[in-house]
Simulated scan of single mutants.
Amino acid sequence: MTDAFIDIPGVRNFRDAGGIGALRRGVLYRSGSFHTLTEEGAQKLKDLGLRTVIDLRSPFELEVWPDQRHGLDHETLSLPTLPANREDVDRPWPESQADLYAFMPETAGPSLAALIRHLTDPAALPALVHCAVGKDRTGLTIAVLQSLLGASDADITADFLLSNLGLGLDQGPVPYVDETGSERLSRPVSAEHIASSLGWIRTHHGTVPAYLHAHGVTEAELDAVRANLSV
Rank of each mutant, 00 (worst) to 15 (best):
Pro175Tyr: 06
Ser182Tyr: 11
Ile194Lys: 00
Asn85Tyr: 10
Ala158Asn: 12
Leu112Met: 15
Asp67Cys: 10
His130Met: 01
Leu169Met: 06
Leu23Asn: 06
Pro188Val: 00
Ile6His: 03
Arg137Tyr: 05
Lys135Pro: 02
Leu149Arg: 03
Leu169Ala: 00
Glu221Ala: 09
Glu75Lys: 13
Ser31Ile: 06
Ser163Val: 05
Leu79Ile: 06
Ala123Phe: 14
Gly166Cys: 07
Thr203Asp: 15
Pro126Asn: 01
Asn85Ala: 14
Arg187Glu: 14
Thr52Arg: 08
His70Glu: 09
Asp99Ile: 08
Arg91Gln: 14
Arg69Gln: 11
Leu162Ile: 09
Leu28Ile: 00
Leu140Ser: 03
Ala227Tyr: 12
Thr203Ser: 15
Leu161Gly: 02
Leu167Tyr: 07
His74Leu: 10
Met104Pro: 05
Ser96Tyr: 14
Arg226His: 07
Leu229Met: 13
Leu125Ile: 07
Leu48Arg: 02
Asp47Trp: 10
Ser230Val: 07
Leu77Asp: 07
Ser182Lys: 14
Arg86Tyr: 11
Leu229Val: 14
Tyr29Ile: 00
Glu87Ile: 07
Arg226Ile: 06
Ile201Asp: 05
Phe14Gly: 01
Leu165Gln: 15
His204Asp: 13
Pro105Met: 13
Leu100Gly: 12
Asp7Gly: 09
Pro126Ser: 01
Ile194Gln: 01
Thr141Ser: 03
Val64Gln: 00
His130Trp: 00
Asp121Leu: 09
Pro173Asn: 04
Asp178Arg: 02
Thr218Ile: 10
Leu212Trp: 13
Thr157Pro: 09
Leu115Pro: 06
Met104Tyr: 08
Ser96His: 11
Val225Lys: 01
Ile201Glu: 05
Gly109Ala: 15
Gly26Thr: 01
Tyr211Thr: 12
Asn228Met: 14
His35Thr: 12
